[in-house]
């Protein structure tokens, strides 16, 4: 069994990941409120908490807790109730292996962390299908089918783009990839970075890839029948999703904790890079209209997949050239 100190360290790591899991999505959510508002020449929340409505999401949380928890009579109740939890857990696990800083500053250093993250994020779609089907609502089901079709497709460029960095770094460990990263990779891996970011957006079903919840066609897609805390869980999953995708993009393609004085300030660079990517995620929501289903599939199969395959060839060629010289 583990000695006392290791238990303490384990508890500390789990605690830190849980805090990040609860705080970072709220920060992203609040930023989204304010950034979207200002991009649309509004002010956004101004009252809750006093200073520029900083406590708006806390107030929202309190509101969600008070709401009635409704399960439709026709719904498949156990599946319906389980779905929000299944949606949250993959992202919580994914957060645990993303390195925050150099050395040991990571929830759980895994040898094949990259592969773990890709596998676990893919499980989220099961929750969407569960929610969609068990709601006993045709809009929910349509939303779920759209989500499944979208996620099946975008999984491919997502994994291929990540594989390119893994090839470049020669390791599947996330801290290892950051360790191996060099600034010129920004150009070498640029196509992969773009493909990864776009298909990441599609994975978490953010606009312009929000066909599954398209509120003007499907009420609210697979979330239509959800209320109160269970709905809040799905919302939380979406925002943790933004954090995970942004953090992964920063880790794989933007050098993670690399920056001036990385030894002591690495965590700050990592957080700033993640925040910058998250900002772009929010920006795209404001700037782009929703893609139609056929456009969405076309973008995936005719643009992203070929680009990521070409990137793999390029990565392999450069890598071989480097090894031989």
């Amino acid at each position: 069994m583990l000695p006392g100190m290791q238990w303490l360290e384990l508890a500390l790591r789990v605690g830190a990941v849980t805090v990040a899991f609860l705080v970072l999505p709220l920060l992203v959510g609040q930023t989204e409120h304010k950034v979207m508002a200002h991009m649309q020449a509004r002010l956004g929340p101004m009252y809750a908490g006093g200073f520029h409505g900083w406590a708006q999401l806390v107030a929202d949380g309190v509101k969600f807790i008070q709401k009635e928890d409704i399960t439709p009579r026709a719904a498949d109740s156990p599946v319906f109730k389980l779905a929000p939890g299944v949606a949250l857990i993959p992202y919580l696990l994914a957060l645990a292996v993303i390195p925050l800083g150099p050395g040991d500053l990571v929830g759980e250093p895994l040898d094949i962390g990259l592969f773990f993250v890709l596998a676990i994020v893919g499980v989220g779609v099961v929750a969407v299908l569960m929610a969609a089907w068990s709601s006993a609502n045709k809009y929910s089901l349509l939303g779920g089918l759209r989500a499944a079709a979208q996620l099946m497709g975008y999984e491919l460029p997502f994994v291929l783009a990540a594989a390119s960095v893994a090839m470049a770094a020669g390791t599947l460990s996330l801290p290892g990839i950051v360790e191996a990263w060099e600034p010129w990779w920004l150009i070498w891996q640029l196509p992969a970075a773009i493909v990864f970011f776009i298909s990441g957006l599609a994975e978490i079903r953010r606009p312009p890839f929000d066909m599954p919840i398209a509120d003007s066609e499907l009420v609210f897609g697979y979330l239509t029948e959800y209320t109160g805390m269970r709905f809040a869980f799905f919302l939380l999953a979406e925002y943790v999703g933004i954090v995970v995708i942004s953090a992964l993009t920063a880790t794989l393609f933007l050098g993670g904790w690399h920056g001036p004085m990385a030894e002591s300030l690495g965590w700050l660079w990592m957080l700033l890079k993640t925040a910058a990517v998250a900002f772009v995620v929010i920006w795209l929501r404001v700037a782009w209209p929703r893609l139609r289903e056929d456009q969405l599939q076309r973008l995936c199969w005719l643009v992203l997949v070929p680009v990521s395959l070409l990137q793999l060839v390029l990565t392999a060629a450069v890598r071989v050239a480097m090894v031989q010289s």
Partner: peptide
């Protein structure tokens, strides 16, 4: 994790 990625994430879906 291959099992999770391929079977849970893709085939069952």
């Amino acid at each position: 994790w291959v099992q999770v990625l391929i079977y849970v994430g893709a085939i069952v879906v």
